[in-house]
């Protein structure tokens, strides 16, 4: 039994990492007042960019950077549309998502089934041998270790730095920025692009560290899960981290049980991540909306 818990938690970290990168990216965009439903698309272009560049250059690190660039570039389309052209954020985000899907199935065909070097698990010396926690946390790939730092870093940056303050102000009271001579549009645009880059890293992690393959549509809705996650984590990076692992655990439960020969209702387990989301949203209800950045609330209502 405890063995099952360890396996599920290990799987939660393994599978939750890509979601966490995307959700942290979405947090940045939404804290600046922009919803980006194109996150799924940024993950996809990041997955393809990461896998393709790893295949071409032989270095998964180059792939990771390429994934970030690709994700950021796709998000730039969203930024230009909603920040400067003032288009509807939901409609634009969905369109950008389909753009990412289309582009990656077009340019990705050459990389399906192609071999590429990826990130392999690197156990952390000493820590990896700690009972229970060692296996859950310290026997992963290097990108997963980076993700451990990402959420606390974002939390600190938003809270304690001038840049973080400007970003939050763009999301809460854009007019104040105007008064002080800043351009809120520029800050929002940068936030959306940075968010897309993080989603791209998430996609690249999925392709080069988790699945070790590229396949069209391989994110399979993880980008949308990330968007939902940000809302129920009330736009807080550390809650986003916890939420990502919760989703990871929900995804890891079915294979962990099945590999042990447990009989269970497969379809109920598949629905589990989404049932969890609905349950949390229902419990939190309007409370989450009150936590929303001021400018974001205008988008929702």
């Amino acid at each position: 039994m405890s063995d099952l818990v360890v396996d599920v938690l290990t799987g939660a970290v393994r599978g939750g990492t890509a979601i966490m990168f995307a959700a942290l990216g979405e947090t940045i965009a939404e804290r600046a007042g922009v919803v980006n439903l194109g996150t799924e698309g940024s993950m996809l272009v990041g997955a393809l960019g990461g896998y393709a560049l790893a295949a071409e250059t032989g270095s998964p690190w180059v792939g990771l950077v390429a994934g970030a660039l690709a994700g950021g570039l796709l998000a730039l389309v969203h930024a230009v549309m909603v920040v400067w052209r003032r288009s509807d954020q939901f409609a634009t985000g969905l369109t950008v998502m389909f753009l990412g899907l289309g582009l990656t199935s077009l340019f990705g065909a050459a990389y399906v089934g192609r071999a590429a070097p990826g990130f392999d698990p690197v156990p952390v010396p000493l820590l990896a041998d700690v009972p229970v926690l060692g296996e859950i946390l310290f026997q992963h790939d290097p990108v997963t270790y980076l993700s451990f730092a990402a959420a606390p870093l974002l939390w600190w940056w938003l809270r304690s730095t001038r840049g973080g303050l400007l970003l939050r102000t763009a999301g809460e009271r854009a007019d104040v920025l105007h008064v002080h001579g800043y351009r809120p549009g520029l800050i929002r645009g940068a936030a959306v692009v940075a968010g897309g880059a993080l989603a791209g890293i998430g996609g690249a992690q999925l392709a080069t560290a988790y699945a070790h393959a590229w396949f069209e549509g391989m994110t399979a809705g993880r980008g949308f899960i990330a968007v939902a996650l940000v809302i129920f984590a009330a736009w807080r990076p550390l809650w986003v981290m916890a939420g990502s692992y919760l989703f990871g655990a929900a995804l890891a439960l079915a294979p962990a049980l099945q590999a042990r020969g447990e009989s269970l209702n497969q379809f109920a387990l598949d629905a589990l991540p989404f049932l969890i989301t609905l349950a949390i949203l229902a419990i939190l209800g309007r409370r989450t909306l009150r936590a929303a950045p001021e400018e974001l609330r205008r988008v929702f209502t």
């Binding site: 396996d7 799987g11 393994r14 599978g15 890509a18 999925l206 392709a207 988790y210 699945a211 070790h212 393959a213 396949f215 549509g217 391989m218 994110t219 399979a220 993880r222 995804l251 890891a252 294979p255 962990a256 099945q258 590999a259």
Partner: peptide
């Protein structure tokens, strides 16, 4: 085809 789920299945 969901490579993420496949990775989890193989690992377990």
């Amino acid at each position: 085809c969901d490579p993420g789920k496949q990775a989890e299945a193989a690992a377990n």
